[in-house]
Design a protein around this nucleic acid. Structure first.
Length: 840
RNA sequence: GCGAGCGUGGCGGAAUGGUAGACGCACUGGACUUAAAAUCCAGAGUCCGAUAAGGACGUGGGGGUUCAAGUCCCCCCGCUCGUACCA
C-alpha cells in the first residue's frame, strides 16, 4: 500500500467533521486555549502566506488540544475593501457576488489543508449580521465623544471624481486616470485614539508574550514626548504664536520660527499676501504621506512677521511658513535652532539664517547631544536635563509657557468615500443638523443596485439610498455616505468569535471565558496599525460598557514572508516558477527552451510572478507535505524560501515514515513495555524521551523548525534500530506510537491514518501529548571540550559531575593538550560538565 | 527621511557567553538495476596536509569587553517591514 495523500486526507477531513473533533466546547469550567490567525481578505485563492500562517496556528491548536485544553480555533473573512470595488469595475461583477464567491473557493481550499477550525463559528464582515453591531458601536462612541467629525485633506482624482487611497496614487497621479492628484478638503469621521494614548503606551510593558520589536514599534508610533509649549508675542500685534518644543533648553539658539501651511496664522497671512497664498497652495498640492513629507526638499516662505524672543525682547525671530511642519503634531509651529537640530540646520543653510551654538561641543554642527550650555544667559553652565527644567520653570513663572506632553499618534480617520464598506449610521438634516440613526433602525444595509460605471461614490449618486427622514423632525434628510475603514471590522472580530449570538455583539459569559486570545499569529506588517487599533477598540468598547476587556491578545507571534526566486526572460519578462526548468545549473523556459535569467529571491508577489500556487502543491504532494515543509524550513518569525527541492524532501520523509510504519510486523502490537529493558532498548527510550522534551520546548518557544528536526532525528533512530527479539519489537512499537503523536500537529492526516493502521480505534486527534520520563533521560557520561587559550585541543568523556580537580588531571593527560601547554598555565578555568580552559 | 528587524557552509537553517554548522536540501562516491528513476549506505565548511594525524582560517565589514563572542557593547554596509485611505 503506497502513501496516497489525496485519499487519506479526504478521508480524515470527513471523519473529523463527522465527529465534530474540533468544535469548541461550551464547558466554561475546562481550561481554555484560544488560538487565532489573522483572518484573510477573500481575494479569491489562498496564497503561500496564508498556508504558512494557518499551518502555524493549526499546529498550536492541535498541540493545545492534546494537552487537554478546550480549544477555540475559528476562521472568518475580512470581506470589505477596495479590491472588490476594483473587481466590480474591471469584471462588471458586483462586489458582493465577487466577495462571496471568493469566500466559497477559499473555504474549500482551507478545508483541503486539514485545518482544525470550528467552522460553525465562521464569520463574514461584509454581512449585515456582522456589521450591524459595529454601527451600534459607532453610535456608542459618538454619544461618548469618542467619534467626531473634522476636516482633512484627501487625495482627489479630478477625472474619476473619487477620493484615492494612498496606494492608488502613483508618482502624484491617479493610478487609473493618470490625472494629477489634487488635495481636497473634506469632512470625515475620526475616533479619539489619542484619549487612550497613555494607557495604550503604559500597558505595552505588560504584554509579556509579545515580540519586543512590535512593542518598540508601537511605543514609537504613539511617540509620547515631554517638552514645553512657548507663547511667542508677535511684533506689532496682540496675537500670540504658540510652539511646542522638546528642547526648550535651546531657546537661546533660536533663529527663526516656522509654521505649518495649514496653521491658522498662515491662512491669516495668506488673506493679505497672494504670494503666501500661492506657497500654501503649493505645499498642499504636495503629497501628505509621511515618507514624502520627510523626504521632500524643504521649502519656506519668508513672511514679514516677527516674534519677540521670550527671554530677550531685543531679539526678534522671523516667521516662515514651511512645508515640513505638520499641523497634526504639537501646535503646528516650531522655533528653529539650527545649531542643534538637523532639519533646522538644513533650513537655516538654505535660507542663510543665523546659527547660534548654545551647547559646548567640539563636534560639527548640528550637534544633537547633551552638554554644557553657552550663550544662554541664565542657562549657561547647565547640562541639558537641568537646562530643560529651569527653562520651563522660567517660562511658567513669566506665564508665557508651560510643561507639555505631546503624542505623535493622530486620531484614527475611519471615513472612506467608498461603496464596499460598512455604512456610517449618521443622518444630516438641514434643520436639526447631524443626528445618529435611531438604534431600532439598524442595520443600515448597503443597497445592492449600484452602478460602478459612473464616476464618484456609488452611495452618493444612488437614486434613493441616502434619502431618508430626519429622526427628530421627520423632514427630508440625507444619510452619511461614507463607510468605515476596514480596520474597523478587524478591530473586534476576535471577540465576536467567542459567541456568534445573532442578537448581541458579545455575551458576557463567553467573552469572560474565551478572551483574551491566548495566541494570535499574523504578519509583521500589522505590527502597529491593526494591532494598535484592536487594543484601542477594546478600551473604547470598555469605556462605553460593551465589554470588560483591556488587552485582546495575550501572546503574539509574527510570521515572516514566504519568498521565492524570481525568473526573467532575456527580454525582461517575468516568468512563473512553473514555466521554468533547470538543466545543468542553467535555467530554461519549459516550452520555448529559451534561456532564463534567475534573479534574487524575493517576497512572493503576483507582479513578479514568483508565486507557487498552494493548490498545485496540495494536488501534487498533499496538504501534509505542504504543511510539513512550511514548518521545517525556517523559524516562523523569519522569512522563508519556498523551494521545490525542499518540498520534495518533505515528501520523501513522509513517504519514509509511511513505509516504515506500514511495514512494521503485524504481531508487535503490544501496549506494555517489556519488564527488562536491554541497553539498546534504554538508548532508544532515552532518545524518544529527549525528543518529547525537545519537541515540546520547541513548540512552546515557537521554533517549529526545531520541532521538525527533532522528529526527523527520532525517526532516524527508530528506523535504524535493529529489532532482534520480541522485546525490541515492543519498544519500537511504543516509540513509533509516540512519534506519531508528536507528528500529529504537523501532519495530521498521515498521523491519523498510520495511527489507525497500528490498530488504534480512537482518533489520534484525541490523544494526549506525551510526557517525558526523566529516568530514561539521565545520562552517566558527559563530553567536555578542553581548551588551551580558548581553542579546543581535545574532548574528554568523563562521568557526569566529575569535580574540578579530577577534570584538570584528566585533561592534562591529553596528548594534544600537552602539545600546546609548553609551560605552566597562568590560569585554569574549569566549569564542571562544561569546559576546561588552560590560559598560558 | 524616520521607526523596527534581519545578515552563520553551495542553499534553508541549529547553537543557556563554553566543541560553530544539529536537522534538512543540493552535491559526490557506493549498493540495487540491462539502464534510469525510486530506495538504501557512506562522505562532506574552506584552505594546508596524504584521502591520515593534526593545523590555519571561518558566523555581512571594522573595533571593543571576556579565560572564552554567532551570542554582549560601539561604528559602518546590505536587505526587509511599517510610515497613518492596501489589507
Amino acid at each position: 500500500m503506497k502513501y496516497n495523500p489525496s485519499l487519506i486526507e479526504k478521508k480524515w477531513q470527513k471523519k473529523w467533521s463527522e465527529l465534530e473533533a474540533f468544535k469548541a466546547q461550551i464547558n466554561y469550567k475546562k481550561p481554555k486555549y484560544y488560538v487565532l490567525e489573522m483572518f484573510p481578505y477573500p481575494s479569491g485563492a489562498i496564497h503561500m502566506g496564508h498556508v504558512r500562517n494557518y499551518t502555524l496556528g493549526d499546529l498550536i491548536a492541535r498541540y493545545k488540544k492534546a494537552q487537554g485544553f478546550n480549544v477555540l480555533h475559528p476562521m472568518g473573512w475580512d470581506a470589505f475593501g477596495l479590491p472588490a470595488e476594483n473587481a466590480a469595475i474591471e469584471n462588471k461583477t458586483h462586489p458582493s457576488t465577487w466577495t462571496y464567491s471568493n469566500i466559497e473557493s477559499m473555504r474549500i481550499q482551507l478545508k483541503q489543508m486539514g485545518l482544525s477550525y470550528d467552522w460553525e463559528r465562521e464569520l463574514t464582515t461584509c454581512d449585515p449580521s456582522y456589521y450591524k453591531f459595529e454601527q451600534k458601536m459607532f453610535l456608542d462612541f459618538y454619544k461618548a465623544g469618542i467619534a467626531y467629525k473634522k476636516e482633512t485633506l484627501v487625495n482627489w482624482d479630478p477625472i474619476e471624481q473619487t477620493v484615492l487611497a494612498n496606494e492608488q496614487v502613483v508618482d502624484g497621479r491617479g493610478w487609473r486616470s493618470g490625472a494629477e492628484v489634487e488635495k481636497k478638503k473634506m469632512k470625515g469621521w475620526f475616533l479619539k485614539i489619542s484619549n487612550f494614548a497613555d494607557d495604550l503606551l503604559n500597558e505595552i510593558d505588560n504584554l509579556k508574550d509579545w515580540p519586543d520589536k512590535v512593542k518598540i514599534m508601537q511605543k514609537n508610533w504613539i511617540g509620547k514626548s515631554y517638552g514645553a509649549n512657548i507663547k511667542f508675542s508677535i511684533k506689532n500685534s496682540s496675537d500670540k504664536l504658540e510652539v511646542f518644543t522638546t528642547r526648550p533648553d535651546t531657546i537661546f539658539g533660536a533663529t527663526f520660527i516656522a509654521i505649518s501651511p495649514q496653521h491658522p496664522l498662515a491662512k491669516k497671512i495668506a488673506e493679505k499676501d497672494p504670494k503666501a497664498s500661492n506657497f500654501i497652495n503649493f505645499c498642499e498640492g504636495q503629497s501628505s504621506k509621511e515618507i514624502d513629507v520627510e523626504k521632500a526638499e524643504k521649502h519656506g516662505y519668508e513672511t514679514n512677521l516677527y516674534v519677540y524672543h521670550p527671554f530677550n525682547k531685543r531679539i526678534s525671530l522671523k516667521i516662515f511658513i514651511a512645508n515640513f511642519i505638520l499641523m497634526d503634531y504639537g501646535t503646528g509651529a516650531i522655533f528653529g535652532c539650527p545649531a542643534h537640530d538637523q532639519r533646522d540646520y538644513d533650513f537655516a543653510i538654505k535660507y542663510s539664517l543665523k546659527i547660534i551654538p548654545v551647547i559646548k561641543t567640539n563636534e560639527d554642527l548640528p550637534f544633537i547631544g547633551d552638554g554644557t550650555h553657552i550663550n544662554s544667559e541664565f542657562l549657561n553652565g547647565l547640562n541639558t536635563a537641568d537646562a530643560i527644567k529651569l527653562s520651563i520653570e522660567k517660562l511658567s513663572n513669566l506665564n508665557i509657557g508651560n510643561e507639555k506632553v505631546t503624542y505623535r499618534i493622530r486620531d484614527w480617520g475611519v471615513s472612506r468615500q467608498r461603496y464596499w464598506g460598512c455604512p456610517i449610521p449618521i443622518i444630516f438634516c438641514d434643520k436639526c443638523g447631524e443626528l445618529p440613526v435611531p438604534e431600532e433602525q439598524l442595520p443600515i444595509s448597503l443597497p445592492s443596485d449600484v452602478d460602478f460605471n459612473k464616476k464618484g461614490n456609488p452611495l452618493d449618486y444612488h437614486p434613493s439610498w441616502k434619502h431618508t427622514k430626519c429622526p427628530k423632525c421627520n423632514k427630508n434628510a440625507t444619510r452619511e455616505t461614507d463607510t468605515f475603514d476596514t480596520f474597523f471590522e478587524s478591530s473586534w472580530y476576535f471577540a465576536r468569535f467567542t459567541d456568534l449570538n445573532p442578537s448581541t455583539a458579545f455575551t458576557t459569559e463567553a467573552l469572560k471565558y474565551w478572551m483574551p486570545v491566548d495566541q494570535y499569529i499574523g504578519g509583521v506588517e500589522h505590527a502597529v496599525m491593526h494591532l494598535l487599533y484592536s487594543r484601542f477598540f477594546m478600551r473604547a468598547l470598555k469605556h462605553v460598557n460593551s465589554l470588560d476587556i483591556t488587552e485582546p491578545f495575550t501572546s503574539l507571534q509574527t510570521q515572516g514572508m514566504v519568498c521565492h526566486q524570481t525568473y526573467k526572460t532575456e527580454t525582461e519578462q517575468w516568468l512563473f516558477p512553473s514555466e521554468v526548468m533547470k538543466k545543468n545549473n542553467n535555467y530554461y523556459h519549459i516550452d520555448t527552451q529559451e534561456p532564463v535569467i534567475a534573479g534574487r529571491t524575493e517576497k512572493m508577489s503576483k507582479s513578479k510572478k514568483n508565486v507557487v500556487d498552494p493548490q498545485q502543491i496540495i494536488e501534487t504532494f498533499g496538504a501534509d507535505t505542504a504543511r510539513f515543509f512550511m514548518l521545517s524550513d525556517s523559524p516562523p518569525n523569519r522569512d522563508m524560501e519556498w523551494s521545490d527541492s525542499g518540498v520534495e524532501g518533505s515528501w520523501r520523509f513522509l513517504n519514509k515514515v509511511w513505509k516504515f510504519v506500514t511495514h512494521l510486523p503485524k504481531n508487535i502490537n503490544k501496549v506494555e513495555l517489556p519488564n527488562n529493558l536491554s541497553e539498546n532498548n534504554k538508548e532508544l527510550l532515552r532518545i524518544m524521551n529527549t525528543s518529547i522534551n525537545e519537541v515540546t520546548k520547541a513548540i512552546d518557544e515557537f521554533h517549529f523548525n526545531i520541532a521538525v528536526a527533532s522528529v526527523r532525528s527520532l525517526y532516524n533512530s527508530i528506523s535504524s534500530y535493529q529489532i532482534s527479539n520480541e522485546d525490541d519489537s515492543a519498544v519500537v512499537f511504543y516509540v513509533t506510537k509516540n512519534l506519531l503523536i508528536l507528528m500529529n500537529p504537523m501532519v495530521p492526516h498521515l498521523a491519523e491514518e498510520l495511527w489507525q493502521i497500528l490498530g488504534n480505534e480512537n482518533i489520534i486527534a484525541n490523544e494526549s501529548w506525551p510526557q517525558a520520563e526523566k529516568s530514561y533521560i539521565e545520562i552517566n557520561n558527559v563530553k567536555i571540550p578542553v581548551q588551551v587559550n580558548g581553542k579546543v585541543r581535545a574532548v574528554i568523556e568523563v562521568p557526569k559531575d566529575t569535580n574540578k580537580q579530577d577534570l584538570e588531571e584528566i585533561a592534562l593527560n591529553e596528548k594534544n593538550v600537552l602539545k600546546f601547554l609548553n609551560h605552566n598555565p597562568k590560569k585554569v578555568i574549569i566549569i564542571p560538565n562544561r569546559i576546561v580552559n588552560f590560559v598560558i
